[in-house]
Design a protein around this nucleic acid. Structure first.
Lengths: 161, 161
DNA sequence: AGCAACTTCTTGAAGCTTCAATGAAATGCC
DNA sequence: GGCATTTCATTGAAGCTTCAAGAAGTTGCT
């Protein structure tokens, strides 16, 4: 007998729609930010995260974890953004392996300058089209998926990387 | 006065959750398929789409549009997959500019071999965790976002790309 | 203290994506 | 027919991501 569980009609439809939506949205936001800020969306997200953080600084590892990217990817990204003068590395006093990424004044200004355009793009693509109810549904669904893939925020699983 | 509309608390929460979920999921599926099939998720999706198509073949442009990727990206992808022997290019009889991508027997076998593992990964990450109601919500939300970004399946907008 | 095991971060190479430019063919217009 | 415009697909270079390896520092065990 065949013990394999395939996707139902509804699940297939949802999966196709999800793939199309995420592919289009990623592409759309990458283009918007590449045009208006000269960097891909993930790079902008890094600056944005730092801009909301006390001291506008964070340990590499923590920034990588919050952003859900590998340390390696972050390392390359920081090197590039440092070249733009938007970020700076400082060594960590409490742990000499550590590096602290600091958003420069120029980097902060860049976020301030480009945030309105980015928020407008996100609104236009998503939240202006969804009801409040759907916005909450999206949040809940996203949390369920994210939690399944890395444990609910702080569950340290050794088999993960 | 400031006429800019920022995101509400709920919208910010949804956006953060969405970004984390999609980043983690993409990464997870890319790894799963890279390990089990030796290709990234998008490449697998191309083979999978072709496998469900009459004659297991499609025009480049149509495959690119269904997959929501650029022709350029598809061109590179097909070159790579052709190198693996999973795809083959044929010239189009009705339009001599055209190319038709054909899934080879080996390519079809590869999809058959790796589909179960992939479906299991998708189920485990998403549908085993969502209620039927949430699955329908995800489909609806995804459709709304996708439609906003490229017109509802067939609306040909000249200003796009 | 000494040492293995682990963590932090970086690096270079290989692979993937984007962008702009190009060749070739089809289409529309007069 | 002749010519400009548009469409189809490809190409190479530059930029981004992944992967495996490695240097440096910390932690835990005895």
């Amino acid at each position: 007998m065949n013990t394999m569980r395939w996707l139902t009609e509804d699940e297939q439809a949802a999966w196709r729609a999800y793939l199309q939506a995420t592919t289009l949205l990623e592409d759309h936001l990458d283009r918007q930010l590449q045009r208006d800020a000269g960097m891909p969306h993930m790079y902008y997200a890094l600056l944005s995260t730092l801009s909301e953080t006390p001291g506008r600084r964070m340990r590499m590892t923590e920034l990588a974890e919050r952003s859900k990217i590998t340390r390696s990817r972050l390392s390359h990204a920081v090197t590039r953004l440092e070249g733009n003068g938007w970020l700076r590395r400082e060594s960590c006093p409490s742990d000499r392996r550590g590096q602290i990424v600091v958003l420069t004044e120029a980097g902060y200004d860049e976020v301030v300058r480009t945030a309105p355009g980015h928020v407008t793009a996100v609104r236009a693509a998503i939240f202006d089209r969804l009801s409040d109810e759907q916005t909450r549904q999206l949040a809940e669904i996203s949390r369920i998926i994210a939690d399944g893939l890395h444990g609910p925020e702080g569950a340290d699983v050794p088999w993960r990387r």
